[in-house]
Design a protein around this nucleic acid. Sequence first.
DNA 1: ATCCCTGCAAACGATTTGCAGAACA
DNA 2: TGTTCTGCAAATCGTTTGCAGGGAT
Lengths: 125, 125
Amino acid sequence: MIQRNTRQRDTILAVLERAEGPLSAPELLCRAQQDLPGLGIATVYRTLKLLTEDGRVRSVNLDGESLFERADLPHHHHFACRVCGKVFDLDVCPLALPQGLAVPPGYLVEGHEVTLYGVCPGCSA
Amino acid sequence: MIQRNTRQRDTILAVLERAEGPLSAPELLCRAQQDLPGLGIATVYRTLKLLTEDGRVRSVNLDGESLFERADLPHHHHFACRVCGKVFDLDVCPLALPQGLAVPPGYLVEGHEVTLYGVCPGCSA
DNA sequence: ATCCCTGCAAACGATTTGCAGAACA
DNA sequence: TGTTCTGCAAATCGTTTGCAGGGAT
């Protein structure tokens, strides 16, 4: 649990606020260092872990790497561009029946993750 | 492209054949070493890469790690247990509309990945 | 006898952890 | 002032790569 407010935590949260999609820890570090040079990668990871435990941040797995986004975003999923590798938020959930899925009996579904792969507008030009 | 048949490649493929779900490279190594002690992790990765390029194996990303499965399996998705961490194959695609998704114009969808999270029968007991 | 393939070990990138000093409350 | 936090560096873990020897064709 987070117990104190610090410049690094404010900065990390601010970067997440203005992100256009989920960010990896190294990417987040890169952006945050523009506001707060000297910030260390360890602090980024420690802060992300605390924020996740606090329920303020959520992690999504994509293309083998962990990306982080604010947890207060409305339910959505992601689109990963095969060309430039960028990840975009989609404001739709293509999963028609979040619950009534035909899963074998005994499996308790608590959540789902949907990722679409393809080419983004910028790369298809 | 694979050009020669070797004991290690046969073994790796055999392990994938009898897997109940996608496997990570370290997990695959562990199982394969029971048939072929001395097998190295580098060979596992190199073989998986070649098999993927050959279209015989496919990789799925889940929980931040890359898992591998045979590419000749019918279209399906995965269920990841939050308790034991195991991944199971689901023989259904909960994605009702593989095509007509409400993605913003300009995005070309070439594929999708769906993962359900929850508790498996073994862990809910 | 080629030349591909393998094992070992070093290299790498992402993530975690130990430790001493810096900074909130 | 007392802890919590932070930065640095070392440690870990998954993955890749270089190299010399072994094996398939």
